[in-house]
Amino acid sequence: MSDITKKKMEQIAQMWNARGKGLIKHMALQIEEVSTEGVRVRMPFNPEFCVDADQTLLHGGILTALLDSVFGLANFVAIEGVSTMATLDLRVDYLRPARSRADVIVRAHCFRETRHIAFNSGSVWFEGHEAAEIARGTASFALTRGNTSLFDAMTKGKAS
């Protein structure tokens, strides 16, 4: 990993941790692995995200939100000089009922970038059950390139 990449990783981790509000903060996401090859993120179990009275079955929507968030992270890591991005479209397949109280793990990567667009894919599973994926998603993002990054805006206090 080059120094520039390392610096960028630190910046990204800082950005996620510095979020004072919003869903990503509420999901308490933890970055486990970051490289230009992809990212791996953990979402601790949260009963608020369930659909059943026993609170053991996650709503599909939270998995979609998780994929969308982690795609964004993967893009910031993989693509140089991105200031902002917007999800253009998103497709998610729910492969199994998401019934567990285990933490959720997501792996996502950017498999192609152009000047304006990034293409992503990712998988979701419960910790320890990687072979039993619960969801898989693909998305495309519209990129805005420039020097003013979302990190700067956030880490320099504009967001808080």
Binding site: H59, G61, I62, T64, A65, L67, S69
Partner: peptide
């Protein structure tokens, strides 16, 4: 959040 919009639509 885009995922929240998708969740609301799913609901």
């Amino acid at each position: 959040h885009g995922g929240i919009i998708a969740s609301f639509m799913e609901a």
